[in-house]
Write a protein that binds this DNA or RNA. Structure first.
Length: 867
RNA sequence: GCACGGGUUGGGGAGCGGUCAAACCCGCAGGGUUUAGGACCCUGUCGCUUAGUGCGUUCAACGGUUCAAAUCCGUUCCCGUGCACCA
């Protein structure tokens, strides 16, 4: 089969007729299907990516056929660090490198038969696109949601640059395996994602997203209710955050983070040296090692006053307290917190139990319970105790209820070239000045030198500008934005991709958005999928859009592994390219196979043998339509067809593609066997079209249709035609047919012209009774056989059932079958259909009354007689 | 450690209270067809047994709920994914 030319033919035809281009037809019911856009790398798409896009494509095609105005766009997340590095490695300019990659990707995507509207393609490396990244930045800056602060970053002394977290491998630089990454404090740009922390957390519940993703985001944002308590140190109030105020009488020390900004305000002169030594030790440890590090600390020399009992307790600086969570300082209750417990053991600090429970030599008791050793609060339990203690602290002006989040502000500064330039100018006089909107976009200069440090710093012409405010000497910000900035709002640009006046037309965005079905990988759960929500909320607050969540429904595709479940990677040399597969089997076969091995959200393994099964199926379909295929629909056919349509429709909607394919196979098997009407065959093709768009177009045309199947209407089903009973009849026919064929084979018959079916109450006993009837009441089976067969024949065959059957068949008809009585109705219904195949069918009913007699006559099981 | 998801008959993978010895694909076995191989078609594939059927033992392990459990609940063991010193 020449799949290749069929594929090319239809891809060209779709493009020529622009059948997947959509209009902004505001009266039509819309549907927005979006697959996360790819990051175009030099190596191109592999089959795993293809799988993802096909999942979206099946869904989009389904919605198109269901009459929706479907927006199904594609674009390229072209800016970013990996592209820059790959380009440098290849000795190319990132711009050229990216353009080549995009061309390659476009070609590959097209070869998959995807229903994209290419007129809306978006490329984030295009100044027309990133202009609006900069515009949003200015808006954020204006609202105080983009700001600069000093922050800890990964620094490689060899590269002389900041590294992204992904470029730190076990604490070492990815390019210098011998070089430990340092933590440096640099001034960086941040987006204030925490501004929306509460909404980001609370509105997750409303989303129709996978539970896992929702849980991951909740976990990441980490909302916790607690109490901020003031501990007095040197006459000043120092707040700490705790969720366990009920343990406050058990506090035996306080720990301040080693990174706390005001740490040295607490350190006494005697302790200064040891604290400094400790800090040096802490700072030399990379982030990775930090995680597995033992809890350590050093006494600061200061003492804090516990507000509930005025006890004087030591203040330590510790490596296990985070500077930017809570207050950067904790009250330590070694009896009821494992970390505090370990710390106290190490430095021999008192462990004071205040909750009823078992504190051992190894472990703290961390559950909630009844308070002891807590003065007036003794006897109170858990949350009740927390509440009372809060009331007390409030009254004393020593505490208040607060909510804390784990979520941090988003660090967007990258000291790299291939990203959106940050539209900020540093003036010697005016300081930090935002670039005026009219001067956007700030275009990345092509003329830079790649080497040490930020390449943008090598283009003096670009850096040196006049201040927009005072026209004096000024310099551009050379940091660029994190690549995730670009992908945080691209879905909106698709609705109006060519707008040069505005970021997008509000009416268009309002019509198309939010995304009805978003599709992409699990790995974005806590990155992209949080940022895109943040952006949406911000743009909503700007009044540009009137919804606050970007995507109603989200779906994560499963990973595609290589043969034998091994992860696909270049180093393992097991990367499957769509081109290779396409060449061998045709892309439709690959699409079908990938969707049939497992549910779309489950991981699956590539299998060269497995795809053979799909190829076989595709070929069978071709063969079927190659012959004279038109027949008449039986009632069974209509029932089966309608049932299949009904089920498959639901299964596609629920992303159960694998199940839908099985139903399709079963429908086709029926079609193949029974010959059906053209209408039925066409409906089958329409469903198939989702998975195999090219082949079905070809066959659609072949059977005389002029228009495309791809935008034909989805088959409807008629519930009244679905009849489970008819399904049963079909399986009975199958069974009887099999029985007949088997007996024919056993009896060694060449052909059959008549079959006798005896329907009896219960098969075994009554089969014998029938024989008995035939034999004129002989009370013994072998006797019956003898009589029936005649002495000579009995001698010849002995007691063998096969021989017996043969004789009986010869005497009374070609073939004898015995069926249970409760199948009588079915047998009668089935009669005419079987006659078409096997000639005369005679159905005879045996009498129920003989049952008892038979049992008496043959007390042993017939199985004994057979051998 | 916390969170989420899993453990099904040779492999993959459905099923998620009765219609279940459990769809479908691959593999394997037997038969048909074919010049042979391949391809194709049919049949079988937990055990014993029948032409069909019947009986027995199964859905990680152990308990429980129910007239009824692969399916619901509890405990344990194992696997995957994510977060991880968040006070």
């Amino acid at each position: 089969m020449d799949f290749k030319s069929i594929e090319q033919k239809w891809q060209d035809a779709w493009a020529k007729e622009k059948i997947f281009e959509v209009k902004d037809d505001f009266d039509k019911k819309k549907f927005y299907v979006l697959s996360m856009f790819p990051y175009p790398s030099g190596s191109g798409l592999h089959l795993g990516h293809a799988l993802n896009f096909v999942i979206g494509d099946v869904f989009a095609r389904f919605k198109i056929m269901n009459g929706f105005n479907v927006l199904h766009p594609m674009g390229f997340d072209a800016l970013g660090l990996p592209a820059e590095n790959a380009a440098i490695k290849a000795g190319e300019h990132p711009q050229d490198y990216t353009n080549t990659s995009i061309k390659h990707y476009t070609k590959q995507l097209n070869s998959l038969g995807l229903s994209y509207d290419w007129s809306r393609v978006v490329n984030t490396a295009d100044p027309d696109y990133y202009k609006w990244d900069q515009w949003i930045f200015l808006k954020l800056f204006e609202k105080g949601l983009a700001y600069q602060k000093e922050s800890a970053v990964n620094w490689c002394p060899e590269c002389n640059t900041v590294l992204a977290n992904e470029q730190v491998q076990n604490g070492f630089c990815w390019r210098h395996e011998e070089t430990k990454v340092q933590i440096k404090h640099l001034k960086q740009w941040f987006f204030k994602t925490t501004f929306y922390a509460d909404e980001l957390y609370e509105s997750i519940d409303e989303l129709n997203w996978p539970n896992k993703t929702k849980a991951m985001q909740k976990n990441w944002i980490g909302k916790s209710h607690g109490i901020q308590i003031n501990f007095e140190i040197n006459g000043e109030n120092w707040p700490i955050f705790t969720t366990r105020a009920d343990t406050i009488f058990g506090v035996t020390f306080v720990v301040i983070s080693a990174q706390h900004k005001r740490l040295f305000e607490l350190v006494t002169s005697e302790q200064k040296k040891s604290v400094e030594e400790f800090l040096q030790k802490v700072n030399s440890v990379s982030e990775k090692e930090f995680e597995s590090m033992e809890k350590e600390g050093v006494f600061t020399g200061a003492y804090a006053i516990n507000p509930v009992n005025n006890e004087k307790i030591p203040v330590y600086a510790g490596n296990f307290v985070l500077a930017d969570y809570g207050c950067g300082m904790v009250m330590a209750v070694p009896a009821h917190d494992q970390r505090d417990f370990e710390f106290a053991k190490k430095y021999s600090i008192e462990i004071k139990q205040v909750i009823k429970g078992e504190v051992t030599n190894e472990r703290a008791f961390t559950e909630k319970g009844e308070l002891i050793n807590s003065n007036q609060f003794n006897g109170l339990i858990a949350d009740e105790a927390i509440k009372s203690i809060l009331e007390y602290l409030k009254k004393e002006g020593k505490g208040e209820q607060v909510i804390n989040f784990k979520l941090r502000d988003w660090s967007i500064s990258r000291q790299r070239y291939w990203g959106t330039p940050i539209p900020i100018i540093y003036c010697e006089k005016c300081g930090v000045v935002p670039v005026p909107e009219k001067d956007l976009p700030i275009i990345l200069p092509k003329d830079v030198t790649f080497g040490e440090g930020n390449p943008l710093k090598t283009n003096e012409d670009w850096i040196n500008v006049n201040c927009p405010k005072c026209n004096g000497k000024a310099k551009r910000e050379t940091d660029t934005m994190d690549t995730f900035v670009n992908s945080s709002w691209y879905y909106l640009r698709y609705t109006d991709p060519k707008n040069s006046e505005k970021i997008f037309d509000e009416k268009k965005a309002d019509y198309w958005c939010p995304i009805d079905q978003y599709i992409g990988g699990y790995e974005h759960a806590c990155m992209h999928l949080i940022y895109i929500r943040f952006y949406t909320k911000f743009l909503a607050d700007l009044g540009l859009i009137n919804f606050r969540e970007p995507a109603k429904k989200l779906f994560h595709q499963g990973m595609l592994n290589g043969e034998g479940g091994i992860k696909m990677s270049k180093s393992k040399n097991n990367v499957i390219l769509p081109e290779t597969v396409s060449e061998k089997y045709g892309i439709d076969t690959a699409r079908l196979f990938l969707q049939s091995i497992a549910a779309p959200d489950k991981p699956r393994d590539w299998s060269e043998k497995g795809i053979q099964g799909s190829l076989k199926f595709v070929n069978r379909i071709f063969d079927y339509f190659g012959k004279d295929f038109i027949g008449v629909d039986s009632k069974q056919t209509l029932s089966k067809l309608n049932k299949t349509i009904k089920e498959v429709t639901n299964e596609i909607e629920d992303f159960e593609y694998n199940i839908a394919i099985i139903k399709l196979r079963q429908l086709f098997e029926h079609i193949e066997k029974n010959k059906v009407s053209k209408d039925t065959a066409e409906k089958f093709l329409k469903i198939m079209n989702l998975f195999c768009p090219h082949i079905t177009e070809e066959l659609w045309e072949k059977i005389g249709n002029k228009k495309f199947i791809s935008n034909s209407s989805w088959p409807t089903f008629d519930e009244s035609l679905i009849d489970e009973q008819l399904d049963k009849i079909e399986s009975i026919i199958d069974l009887v047919r099999q029985d007949i064929l088997k007996i024919k084979e056993l009896a060694g018959l060449e052909k059959i012209s008549s079959v006798k079916i005896i329907v009896a109450p219960k098969w075994k006993w009554d089969a014998l009774n029938i024989v008995k009837d035939v034999c004129k009441e002989k009370p013994d089976f072998s006797l019956a056989m003898k009589t029936l067969m005649g002495k000579e024949e009995f001698k010849k065959y002995g007691g063998e059932i096969q021989g017996f059957l043969k004789v009986v068949i010869n005497k009374y008809s070609d073939l004898l079958l015995v069926k249970e009585l409760d199948e009588l109705d079915l047998m009668l219904q089935v009669k005419s259909q079987l006659e078409e195949e096997f000639g005369l069918i005679e159905i005879e009913t045996a009498k129920e009354s003989v049952e008892l007699k038979a049992k008496n006559a043959f007390p042993t099981k017939p199985a004994l007689i057979v051998k």
